[in-house]
Computed example of a mutant assay.
Amino acid sequence: MTLKVYLSGEIHTDWRERITEGAGDLDVTFSGPVTDHAASDDCGVAILGAEADKYWHDHKGAMVNAIRTRKGLMEADVVVVRFGEKYKQWNAAFDAGYAAALGKSLIVLHGAEHAHALKEVDAAALAVASEPEQVVAILRYVLSGRLPAGAD
């Protein structure tokens, strides 16, 4: 069984690399949004033309990025949404809700500092992890039925 996993959320830490490297021996394909912040912000105006108003600049980018995001979420078997510490990721919350509405298996990844703020998002998830390595262990278990070494 091959799992298609969409990695959504914050782009300022190495969590994606930790998951993809940790799952290197698993039958998993990963996808996700454009993680080049400047490209993501400016794709709309770079492709469709400049906007004098910042709102419309951002709006064009959001719409172009949504093409990739929707496809990735719809095709995924599992959606992992990471909420980081540095910024509020409204787009990540939207992706989590969209994935839940699509009936996708949702894994939420965040630290304890977000437990209260994300309680509704966490309630929609099938697992809430605090470290990328826990996501890898979940994927390994789903694919093989094996628990991590040393687990009871």
Rank of each mutant, 00 (worst) to 15 (best):
K54I: 13
K54E: 13
Y55N: 10
Y55E: 11
Y55L: 13
W56D: 14
H57K: 15
H57F: 15
H57S: 10
D58P: 00
G61Y: 01
G61H: 04
A62S: 09
A62I: 04
A62G: 13
M63S: 08
M63D: 03
M63I: 15
V64K: 10
R68P: 02
R68D: 13
T69E: 10
R70L: 08
K71H: 11
G72V: 06
M74G: 01
M74N: 07
E75A: 12
E75P: 02
D77V: 05
V80T: 12
V80K: 10
V81M: 06
R82V: 02
F83C: 07
F83L: 10
G84Q: 08
E85Y: 04
K86R: 14
K86M: 09
K86H: 09
Y87M: 09
Q89W: 00
N91A: 11
N91P: 00
A92N: 07
A93E: 13
A93L: 13
D95S: 10
A96Y: 03
G97Y: 02
G97C: 09
Y98G: 01
Y98W: 14
A100H: 12
A100F: 05
A101M: 11
L102D: 02
L102I: 06
L102E: 07
L102Y: 09
G103C: 06
K104L: 03
S105I: 04
L106R: 03
I107G: 08
V108F: 01
H110Y: 15
A112G: 03
E113S: 13
H114R: 15
H114L: 15
A117S: 13
L118D: 08
K119N: 13
K119Y: 07
K119W: 03
E120Y: 11
E120H: 10
E120K: 04
V121M: 12
D122C: 07
D122V: 06
A124H: 07
A124W: 02
A124Q: 12
A124N: 11
A125V: 08
A125T: 06
L126W: 03
L126K: 13
A127P: 00
V128Y: 01
V128S: 09
A129S: 12
S130P: 02
S130R: 15
E131Q: 12
E131I: 00
P132S: 04
P132R: 04
P132A: 03
V135Q: 05
V136M: 07
